[in-house]
Structure formats: structure tokens, C-alpha cells
Amino acid sequence: MNYVFHLLIYFEIYAIVALSLNLLIGYGGLLQVAHAAYYGIGAYTAALLWTKLGWGFFPGLAVGALAAGVLSLLVSLPAWRFKGDYFVMISIAVQTLIYAVLYNWTELTNGPFGISGISRPGIGGYTFVTTSSVVVLYGVLAVGLGLVMAFLKWSPFGRALQAMRDDDLAARSVGLPVDLLKLQAFALASAMVGIAGGLYAAYVSYIDPTSFSLNESILMLSMVIIGGTGNVRGPLTGAAVLILLPEALRFLYLPDAVAANVRLLAYGLLLVLMMHLRPQGLAGTYRYQ
């Protein structure tokens, strides 16, 4: 049973990641490839505040989200100027830079050895020790953030973002502050993925830079694109596929050495097939234009 809880926790974390990335890709049409870096900033900021300064769970999580939100300026300011492939290049550059800082600033981040001994989440005097209690806590947070995303789709902000995605020039001409919208979307999405990073750190109690590399960003991107973008159920489907695919592949009885490779292989195949047959993803509504 504990194993199911473990999967559920991962699903909840990845659901937040997928929903936040969907805000950029699905609502805003911004192909962000640096998302794992912001996931990492949230995780590292929170973990350092918890372990080094002894902060409480929620303050640490909040400051981690804030740090990720503020640093999102690194990609959102270039997004004013660059579109399409050039924006992808910029976000790859930002991803590489943040990863290099996490990996090389050994005095602060302990470099490749990572941060260990992160304690489980707690509120007041109560600590969420059992896996089932973490499922509940993360579930509440994930549902809360999911509702925000669902609300955003129909809110004036979400509609403005989708207008910008569909036609940048037309959105400008009716007076939408497109540049400001981009800043807000990136800040919001990065803060949200920062929260997911903090949750991840608190659950596994150990983080190192390899969880926040370019490959991880690509995995996040694949998850959202396979699941579908432009609504709430698409990213959730993507997160579910990400969690369930390894379980499904278990039935093939692959040797351990190749299991991870076969999983990524299936991911690559799914990406190509999706682009051929269903560009909006399994459960999405938005097609790239």
C-alpha cells in the first residue's frame, strides 16, 4: 500500500509541475525548456532555508517559490524579444546557467553531493511522518493549485494570455499589455514549479543537481506535450502517463539495466507519434500554430 502512496505523491508533485508548465506552453504558447531549473531553484532555496536556518515548512516553501518567481525574469525578459526557435535557445541557455550554478557553487549548494537530511513537512507541532499523511497534504496543495489553473483559463488574465498566444499582434492592437502578461505568466509558472520543487525536496529528503538538468526539463516538456496542453485535464493526463508508464513497462520484465532507457524510448516514440496523429496531445485542446 505504501508503494501506491509513493506513486500518488509523485503524481501530485508532477501534476503541479505539468500544470505550471501548461500555463506557459498551453495558455501562453511559450515553449519553455528551462522549467527543471526553476523546479531546482524552488527545491534548493527551500531545502537550504529548512536545513541551514531551521525555517518552518511553509515559510521555506513560500520563499522558494518567490525566488523561482523572481529569477523567472531571466527567461521572461528575453521573451519580449525572442520567439520560436530563438526563445528555445535562450531558455536552453538559462537552463544550463542555473544548472551550472547549482552544480558549481559548492559553498552554498554543496555541489554534486547535494543537500541531505531535509526533514519531512510539518505544520505547527505536527509533522507529516507517514506516507499517507504526505499524500493528503500534497493532495490538498495540488488540488488547490489545480483549481487556480482551472480558474485562470477562464479568467481575464488567462483569456488575455490565450489571445497573445494565438495572435501577438492582434492582442497588442486591442491594448493588451503583452510584455507584462509574459512577465506575469513566467513568474506565476516558475513560482508554482518552485513549490513543486520544495515539495519534492521535503518528500525525498535529499536533492542533488542531477534532478534539475536539461534532460529533466525535456522530460517535463514531453510530459505536458504527450498529455496535452491548453486545459487542465491535459497536463494531469501527462503526469499520470509519466507515473504509470514505468509501471506498465514492468510487465515486459525488462532487465533493470535497460528499464530506464526503454521508458525514455517509449517517451520519444510517443512524442513523434503525437506530433503526427494528435498534435494537441492525449487530452489537450491547443494545437501549435
Partner: peptide, 11 residues
């Protein structure tokens, strides 16, 4: 871009 990414992963 995404198709190429998928092909990269597969290869």
C-alpha cells in the same frame, strides 16, 4: 522541434 526531440530520444 518536438518531433526532432522525440527522434533524438528514440535514437
Amino acid at each position: 522541434l518536438i518531433g526532432s526531440l522525440g527522434a533524438y530520444l528514440v535514437l
